[in-house]
Computed example of a mutant assay.
Amino acid sequence: MQFFVRGTHILQHAKACGRAPQPITDGLTAAWHEPCHAACWLSSTSRNISTKRYTAHDDFAQPKQIPTHVLRRTEGWGAHSRAGEKFNMIVNTTEHLVLEPTEEEKWLASQLKVAGNKKNGQWQKVVATYSGFSPLVLTAAMQAALKQGNYEEGYEIYRRVRHMTLPTYTISMKLLGKLGQHDEIERLWGQLMKMDIVGQPEASGRIDAAADNGDIQAAVRVLHYLQEKRLEADKLHFSSAINACANAKDADRAQSAQRLFDEMLAVGLKPDIATYTNLLRALANEPRQRLLNLLTDVKNQNLTWNGVFAETFLFIFLQSPQKGVWTKVDVIASHLRKLSLADVQTAKEFVDELKRSNVKLNKSCRLIDEAIQSVLQEARKVMGQSP
């Protein structure tokens, strides 16, 4: 059996492999004969890399290149084991070596993880000092770029990764989703499907990419795929799929979101405040009573309010202009005067409840609260002057 792959230097195989496969080189293409049940895959185009054992012990996701059914057969994994958690990498040099990040690379990856949580651009400085090819380091850099919203920089790292190894799919698809790289997302997803190595993390990455692009059909297809493969879809999968509805321009996006929400409940998953926030956004063009029904549902679930949900509800319920954000009290008040006093009063009651619940209101909510009080005070004065 042969697997044809681009490049000539590094391949992966399962631990059950008793001996290294023999290469038949042909220019830029190498054919690797499979000596055992484990499939072999090329993973790099460079010889200038560390040559030690590469283990998947770090909390960063690792490349997953061996078909699930092969690993389960050779390693005796359970039906729900994640693909790609166990593998070796063999280097085609004068002797067979096993790739692992050096201690310096492990340290650098840990520094990137820390820098990725700080909004000071420090992660770029950290990765700028590195010229190697460790998937551990470059995956950490991609993750930092994703967290910091530096999607273009993350994409450049992805371009570097994909030429030396099958990329870390979950993070890669999330990055590509932020940049609207539809064709590349489908290419990666196609690779996963072909190799039968889709797990919950990979599905999450694909649904997140669909959510960023408002692709309801893609999100639903992934959920159905998980069901077909008997892989349990969790709360985050459904919440992200509902977010795809919220970002979609489809006329029936509210109905699609509601169907997903109902399906989520049907399989026994309990929505959290983030799920309700996504559902609320999907219902943005629905009648106000439906929004109030959702608010009542959140209360009945005894969920804790947060500032994101509060801002989302106020902007949607009070019909904030589609373009721009309310930044001045007088501008907001001018808009609120066009609404019924009953709706403004309802919004006030919601804000008062947030305050009683000690929810920290962000700047937008505070401005809206001030505008509401101003409009209601004006209304009371007018009513007092009336006969």
Rank of each mutant, 00 (worst) to 15 (best):
G7S: 07
L11T: 00
A14K: 00
K15P: 12
G18K: 05
G18I: 05
R19P: 01
Q22N: 08
I24G: 02
D26N: 08
L28S: 05
T29W: 15
A30F: 06
A30Q: 06
A38V: 03
A38F: 09
A38W: 15
L42S: 04
S50Y: 15
T51C: 08
R53F: 06
F60Y: 03
R73F: 07
T74Q: 12
W77D: 15
G78W: 02
G78E: 13
K86S: 10
V91I: 05
V91T: 00
N92S: 13
T94S: 07
E95R: 06
H96T: 06
L97S: 15
L99Y: 12
P101D: 11
E105R: 02
A109F: 12
A109G: 08
Q111D: 08
N117G: 07
K118Y: 11
Q122G: 07
V126G: 09
V126P: 15
S131E: 14
L138V: 00
M142K: 04
K147D: 03
Q148I: 04
Q148G: 08
E156V: 13
R162M: 04
M164E: 08
M164W: 11
Q200L: 14
A203I: 13
A203H: 01
R206G: 01
A209R: 02
I216M: 12
Q217H: 04
A219M: 11
K229R: 14
A233P: 02
H237E: 00
S240R: 15
C245M: 02
C245P: 09
C245I: 08
A254I: 14
S256D: 11
Q258P: 02
L260P: 12
A266H: 07
D272Q: 13
I273Y: 12
T275K: 08
T277C: 09
L279T: 13
L279I: 07
A284F: 11
L291P: 13
L291S: 04
L294R: 03
D297F: 00
W305H: 10
N306I: 15
A310R: 01
A310E: 13
I316Q: 08
P321N: 04
P321K: 02
T327H: 15
K328Y: 03
D330P: 15
L339C: 07
A342R: 11
D343L: 12
F350Y: 04
S357P: 01
N358D: 06
K363M: 10
K363R: 03
L376P: 12
E378C: 09
A379T: 06
